[in-house]
Write a protein that binds this DNA or RNA. Structure first.
Length: 568
RNA sequence: GCGCUCAUAGCUCAGCCGGAUAGAGCAUCGGAUUUCUAAUCCGACGGUCGCAGGUUCGAGUCCUGCUGGGCGCGCCA
């Protein structure tokens, strides 16, 4: 089923062709209810191109604009806009068509992509902190939406499991480890050991050299060090898995940096042989002399001491994703600080003749109430686990207040759904590039553009169905009489317009905003239009609208990685 | 110094390709309910879109410069 927007755009294209005009302009939802439901600026664009009167061009278009089955008579307004008002029967028919459509009118992509999406990417032997939320939540939402649109998606966790820090981790493990503490809290103990080693190594050159020695042994394949490293990775992965479980995140593959180790020498050779890389000050570098912004920013792929760094690893990762995973699209969702790095990696891939679509999807920071990077009182990163736990505790408190009669199991389940949903939604409802200020009160508020508000709309609908004594409704069509019904129906039809536009520029907040407006329209409908108390045929029609709204809310939130409770 | 990014109402934020009188939420004020969950709805108040130029029928949006914040800039990842 095609959206109104798509159908009208097609009709517009036909009209332009019939009027001997070039294709121009587009069809968008009306900016104001006074202008109808949709509008097009085609006449304005064409008039500008051709130096003609916009309203006259608009009239030429309208003369050929065959939309009688969808709209009332098109109106010319303002400078030369063409305003379109949907006919009620067209809206009824479209909405009715959604009642039994599991995709709610969302078309699958015309050309499915083979995407790998890299998000989350925590470091081994370090706890995940609030900063990881954005990458995880944004990446997961992109993956869900891309998949729903019919793309072939592989979710990859590019874990930081290799690097110079392991020299210190291993030395600390051998000299400072408290086994009991490790049992109690593996990551916490690893962090303690790492920090202590760091301090000693800063103060004592002998320790520093010893750490370097341990690193060399690890990289050289020393069995003892390798075993320690493996154990660190295992402990970390187990702790990550717990957080992912809580967040409802899953990965298809988790390829750490170490996975690419044996590919690194070959890459450096290849780039040297092809002349893309050269030796400079003892290091192997790729220069970008023809790109002004990168001219003085070479990418080092082998250090002067012979070691490789993460640039080499990321080139190997590109190889793997294209050659082994057969991807044609690579999305990397990490923070903005790595922009230069990925610009270089993508540029190298381009120079090597790679034709995949590479995107580095960045995001802003999470700030505390003081507008600075969110930290604990003592200046530490705020642990992700603590944030998730607190969200659930706070949600639980609200549920106890509002709905104390729920049984224990449902309270716990609902607190989880609301707490985690609130955190995710706070992130996703905002444009990803802007820094946002973390506020429990705002994200858990039941009013405004929040997860609980949306979840509540769903809950109210479920309540209606419980009272009605049916679990779904088998209505085949809706009838739209009241303005609030019409408004709600139009919103429901626009789900199929909102979802694909998210991938335009990776803006899940478009979907979040849509859902907020849908919930808003529903609440207005709920106030104005009694459902169960109304007479047939309005009753069945309204029940059908309720059911459809609930399913769209549920699906929309699911695409954002957020669940809905039955009661709250 | 160079590069990237952000700056919109008292506060938190939308505004994707340039389109009509710049929109929400919170806060404030005023209304609506013996409810299908008021956990809601309706209304009012509130803006020199950081500043200055430019492009054009039209600029929050594009270009240039400036101010302010964040981040990055050869051997950490």
């Amino acid at each position: 089923m095609e959206t109104f927007q798509a159908r009208l755009a097609r009709k517009l294209a036909d009209a332009l062709a019939a009027a001997d005009l070039p294709q121009a302009g587009d069809v968008t939802p009306a900016t104001d209810p006074r202008f109808g439901d949709y509008q097009t600026n085609a006449a304005l664009v064409l008039a500008k191109q051709r130096g003609e009167n916009p309203r006259a061009v608009a009239q030429r278009i309208i003369d050929k604009f065959d939309v009688a089955e969808l709209c009332e008579l098109p109106q010319i307004a303002g400078a030369g806009f063409i305003n379109l008002t949907l006919r009620s029967d067209a809206l009824e028919e479209q909405t009715s068509g959604l009642l039994h459509d599991e995709r709610f009118g969302v078309a699958t992509a015309a050309t499915p992509k083979r995407i790998v999406i890299d998000f989350g990417s925590p470091n081994v032997a370090k706890p995940m902190h609030v900063g990881h939320i954005r990458s995880i939540v944004l990446g997961d939402a992109m993956a869900r939406i891309a998949q729903f649109l019919g793309h072939d998606v592989i979710r990859d966790n590019h874990i930081g499991d290799w690097g110079t820090q392991f020299g210190m981790v291993i030395w600390g493990w051998k000299n400072l480890l408290d086994r009991e503490a490790l049992e109690r809290g593996p990551i916490a103990e690893l962090v303690r050991v790492y920090k202590a080693t760091n301090e000693r190594s800063a103060a004592d050159p002998a320790v520093r050299d010893a750490c370097r020695e341990e690193l060399v042994k690890l990289q050289g394949g020393n069995a003892e060090n390798f075993a320690i490293w493996q154990e660190c990775v295992g402990l970390s992965m187990r702790e990550f898995a717990r957080a992912y479980e809580l967040l409802g995140i899953r990965y298809d593959i988790q390829r750490g940096e170490s996975f690419y180790n044996d590919r690194l020498p070959g890459i450096v050779d290849r780039l040297l042989n092809s002349g893309l890389a050269e030796i400079s000050e003892g290091a192997v570098c790729v220069f970008f002399r023809d790109i002004p912004e990168l001219a003085d920013k070479p990418c080092i792929i082998r250090k002067s001491d012979g070691g490789f760094n993460y640039a080499t690893t990321d080139i190997a990762t590109v190889d793997y994703r294209l050659d082994d995973l057969h991807r044609d699209t690579v999305w990397i969702e990490t923070g903005a600080p790595q922009q230069l790095h990925f610009r270089q990696i993508f540029e190298i891939a381009r120079r090597e003749g790679r034709h995949a679509d590479f995107r580095h999807i960045t995001h802003g920071n999470i700030l505390g109430e003081d507008r600075k990077l969110m930290k604990t009182r003592s200046g530490e990163n705020v642990a992700l686990q603590d944030v998730l736990d607190e969200a659930i505790v706070r949600a639980r408190k609200i549920i106890e207040e509002k709905n104390p009669d729920l049984d224990e199991a449902e309270k716990a389940r609902t607190a989880h759904i609301i707490g985690i949903g609130a955190i995710k939604y706070a992130d996703l409802s905002q444009f990803r590039m802007t820094d946002y200020i973390f506020s429990w009160d705002r994200m858990l508020s039941l009013q405004g553009n929040t997860a609980p508000y949306l979840q509540n709309a769903y809950v109210r609908i479920r309540s209606i169905f419980r009272k009605a004594g049916v679990d779904d409704n088998s209505a085949e069509s809706v009838t739209l009489i009241e303005a609030a019904e019409r408004n709600l129906a139009k919103r429901l039809c626009q789900f199929a317009e909102a979802v694909p536009s998210v991938l335009n520029d990776f803006r899940p907040n478009i979907l979040a905003n849509y859902l907020f407006e849908l919930a808003n329209s529903f609440h207005a409908f709920y106030e104005a239009c009694p459902v169960l108390k109304s007479e047939e045929p309005a009753r069945s029609s309204r029940l059908a609208l309720c059911g459809l709204t609930a399913r769209v809310l549920q699906r929309g939130l699911d695409l954002l990685g957020i669940e809905v409770p039955e009661r709250m």
